[in-house]
Design a protein around this nucleic acid. Structure first.
Length: 833
RNA sequence: GGGCGGUUAGCUCAGCUGGUUCAGAGCGCCUGCCUUACAAGCAGGAUGUCGGGGGUUCGAAUCCCUCACUGCCCACCA
């Protein structure tokens, strides 16, 4: 999807491009031929506005330059910003195919635009019509409905008295927010059932100031409850009034011109700005005693999305696309699930818009854009609409308007691949698979691409659409230049690293939410990168130190475990990416690499290598292989550091790259849930031992003695298999693993972990009172737990209705905790004695 | 007016196809560690009536209803 050429990459683009890059790299490493086609959009109004602004600062207007010169200036601007975008995309590591880069005003894309226009015109789906459209009086161009942003504004509601023609002492009072348009009133409307006006409907009132008699019509459109129940009708300056005007064949009188100033029909107000005129007209009405009252009134007012000017409903000749026929197949494609939205809820939004779709105003009175391929014959007003200009060009004049930017963007998925020619790229890469975009352009762009694709290629443009998160600042405010809360992406990359930023963004972005971002959050990614770096450095160092110690080593429980964890991680990773939950995929990697591999496996290997010096190199080589798999999985998110590490951990061929290596395949047979559970138990046991040490105030350098009473021989075996690791990692000198059920002879503190009762030997005195209190608390908690399980099990409903496994589980819980309670009580006695 | 979200530890959020990885993570905070990869680190710890109320169920953070607050989108009454 093409970014605009109007400015710099911001943090939202960064997220969007990272997401796209993750999918491109992931699929590429999974054996697919991936095309990620870069490009940029000429962004008609936005760009023209910027360039005009720049010229204005130099004291030049576009009219001074003339159309041709001005457009040249815009191309110059485009070149600068385009370079900027390329630099930034490269910097963030986007693995796009630069050879296929496109711009919406390329020759090829321009042909596609003209072809589409001509086809639609010939099919009768494009027409020119005089309508009320949204007019930007500053840019002096028409806008589509989607380009108008409504904001609440505090205004006034003016109550104006219109005298009856046949009785100048009687009035109809209308309420309006826009008194300046009254000069163009051609009727007054009331509701047919409104008794207040039943004897007035059909009569005439005098339009004040203008002193013209206008009819009072009765129409059900009028809301009796609003204002006075009487509505002034200004067909030239209000879309609803225009409708009523057509219905009753009312005259349209235009009083505001294309610059937002009052025109000649405004009489003595002619030449005034619309807002200035409002004041003057209200003054005049006051003078005439025709203002009943003025109230404060908050209402929604439309502004130009790009320029910010208050939009004027304006009657003019414009080009429109009849959207209904295009919308229907596009709606069906999404409803039928041919195109899937993620998150799915956007389907409703899409349906809602598509079912109420209105004609699209595509002509813009700008100079920057695709000029409409329509020529008018200078002599006979004949119309010529073709991709190429007429041969006798001197006899024709081209329509001066350009097309809405989106009229080229909506062709992007196929116009960039050579359409309308059916070349290799189009055959090979179209339809595409994946679109990632911001939800705010679902109507502007996504919906229209679907419509255009179906209309012109009979194919859907893409099968999956991901609406990415909106990035806000850490207080939840929108990022904006005026607030100064939009981080400079390049600066953030300089400070924390590109990979850190990329990782942080996707890690913090759960599907379908707004993300509160602050650059400090990049510490997450930076620290993670640092961890990776150090882990790799350590593994390599160890491997080198133990060169030649290649004796095969025995796989122990931790070796089986780490393989299982790796496979479980791959599974979660694939699931996350498949469901468009990149945060879950990246969290799975983060947890595995940091929590499992670094915190536990590497620590275990230190011990293992010490115990088996002949196998040391083999042990670390094996670890490096696992690490290599992990960084391959991570590569799509953190391309730079993973490449660097991948090159470093093994000998590589020149020109080889992790980005074209193969993703590790999921091997579910290596997932061993029992071993994973066993290791969790061992980890908990160690944590408990460490905790007891800490609570006893043992210095980390002091070793201690521990006895563990196991419930069964099998439980004991598990500990024996990890005995050395437990001793080392929990700093235990003597570790006695017993299956008997009595406390050791030495003085100790105790704790219970699953089937294990731990006793930590205490030298000297212990604080009996403190220990008693602790035990009491634990005993109470256990008793409470037993009571609640008992209650559950004595509930016949539970026993009968819950699944057998759940009931058995409860029974087991009860049994375990009863034993635990017993042991705790025994120990309590021991301490007290 | 219509539609769609959100409300879980001080902060930012996971969990939401109902039942021990069901109360979690990161940051922040407290304690102790320069343990021979990493102080951007390691070990340990504290903190929540899972927005209020009601319902369904043997069982609800998880499903339903309702209220409150909050964000967004669409339409727009002059």
């Amino acid at each position: 999807p093409p970014p605009n050429v109007t400015g710099n990459l911001h943090i939202g683009h960064m997220l969007n491009n990272t997401i796209q890059d993750v999918y491109a790299r992931w699929k590429r490493m999974s054996g697919f031929n991936v095309l990620w086609l870069p490009g940029s959009d000429h962004a008609g109004i936005a760009t023209q506005t910027k360039v005009e602004g720049k010229l204005r600062a130099e004291g030049v207007s576009r009219y001074d330059l003339g159309r041709e010169k001005f457009v040249e200036k815009v191309w110059e601007w485009k070149d600068i910003y385009h370079k900027n975008i390329v630099t930034q995309l490269t910097r963030m590591g986007a693995s796009v195919d630069w050879d296929r880069e496109r711009f919406t005003m390329d020759e090829g894309l321009s042909i596609a635009v003209r072809k589409v226009f001509v086809d639609l015109y010939k099919k009768g789906l494009i027409y020119k019509g005089k309508r009320i459209i949204n007019w930007d009086p500053e840019q002096q161009t028409a806008l589509s409905d989607e380009e108008v942003i409504y904001k609440e504004k505090n205004d006034k509601l003016y109550y104006v008295k219109y005298p009856l023609v046949d009785n100048k002492n009687k009035f109809v009072i209308i309420a309006t927010t826009r008194p300046e348009t009254m000069l163009g009133d051609t009727a007054i409307a009331v509701h047919p059932k409104d008794e207040r006006y039943s004897n007035i409907a059909g009569k005439k009132v005098m339009l004040p100031i203008v002193d013209k008699a206008i009819p009072v019509i009765a129409d059900e459109y009028v809301d009796m409850a609003f204002g006075t129940g009487a509505l002034k009708i200004t067909p030239a300056h209000d879309p609803n009034d225009f409708m009523i005007g057509e219905k009753y064949s009312l005259e349209t009188v235009q009083v505001i011109d294309h610059t937002g100033k009052m025109n000649d029909h405004a009489g003595r107000f002619s030449g005034l700005d619309r807002f200035e005129a409002r004041k003057k007209i209200v003054e005049k009405l006051k003078e005439l005693g025709l203002i009943e009252k003025i109230e404060d009134y908050a209402h929604n007012v439309g502004y130009s999305e790009r320029g910010g000017a208050q939009v004027e409903p304006y009657l003019s000749d414009q080009w429109f696309v009849n959207m209904k026929p295009l919308a229907e197949p596009a709606l069906n494609a999404v409803r039928a699930g041919e195109i899937k939205f993620h998150p799915e809820r956007w389907v409703k939004t899409y349906e809602n818009w598509m079912t109420n779709i209105r004609d699209w105003c595509i002509s813009r009175q700008l100079w920057w854009g695709h000029q409409i391929p329509v020529w008018y014959n200078k002599k006979n007003n004949e119309i010529y609409c073709e991709v190429n200009p007429p041969s006798d060009i001197e006899n024709w004049e081209q329509d001066p308007d350009v097309l809405d930017t989106w009229f080229s963007s909506w062709l992007w998925p196929f116009s960039t691949l050579g359409w309308p020619e059916d070349k290799y790229d189009l055959k090979k890469y179209f339809p595409t698979d994946f679109l990632s975009t911001a939800a705010d352009i679902i109507f502007f762009w996504v919906a229209r691409m679907i419509m255009a694709s179906l209309e012109f290629t009979s194919k859907i443009p893409f099968s999956d659409v991901y609406f990415h998160n909106i990035i806000r600042d850490d207080q939840g405010r929108k990022l904006s230049k005026s607030l100064g809360n939009s981080p400079d992406v390049i600066e953030v990359m300089n400070k924390y690293g590109t990979d850190a930023l990329r990782f942080t963004l996707v890690y913090l972005s759960p599907q379908g939410t707004d993300v509160y971002f602050a650059e400090e959050k990049c510490e997450i990614g930076r620290n993670f990168a640092n961890k990776l770096w150090n882990a790799a450095r350590f593994l390599l160092m160890k491997k080198e130190q133990s060169q030649g110690a290649n004796k095969p080593f025995e796989q122990d429980i931790f070796d089986i475990w780490v393989q299982s964890r790796l496979q479980s991680t791959i599974k979660a990773y694939l699931k996350g990416l498949g469901e468009y939950k990149i945060n879950e995929a990246s969290a799975a990697l983060y947890d595995f690499i940091w929590g499992d591999f670094c915190d536990w496996y590497i620590e275990v290997l230190k011990i293992k290598a010490n115990d088996n010096p002949d196998s040391a190199e083999a042990i670390f080589e094996n670890a490096i292989n696992i690490f290599e798999d992990a960084i391959k999985l991570l590569h799509p998110v953190m391309p730079f550091i993973t490449e660097e590490l991948w090159q470093g951990i093994k000998e590589r061929k020149e020109d080889d790259s992790i980005s074209i290596s193969n993703m590790p395949q999921l091997n579910e047979s290596l997932i061993d849930e029992n071993t994973e559970k066993d290791i969790i138990l061992i980890q908990q046991l160690m944590a408990s031992a460490r905790n007891m040490r800490a609570e006893m105030g043992l210095s980390p350098s002091v070793k201690c003695d521990v006895t563990v009473n196991c419930k069964t021989g099998k439980d004991a075996e598990l500990l024996i298999s990890a005995k050395n690791y437990i001793r080392s990692l929990a700093k235990i000198e003597e570790l006695a693993i017993e299956t008997k059920n009595e406390a050791p002879a030495y003085k100790s503190v105790t704790s219970v972990v699953g089937p294990y009762q731990l006793y930590l030997k205490i030298e000297g005195l212990i604080d009996v009172e403190q220990e008693k209190a602790k035990l009491n608390k634990e005993i109470e908690r256990t008793e409470g737990f037993i009571a609640s399980v008992n209650k559950k099990l004595s509930n016949q409903n539970f026993v009968n209705k819950a699944t057998p496994e759940v009931v058995d589980n409860e029974k087991k819980k009860l049994e375990d905790n009863k034993q635990k309670l017993e042991k705790l009580k025994e120990h309590y006695k021991l301490i007290v004695s």
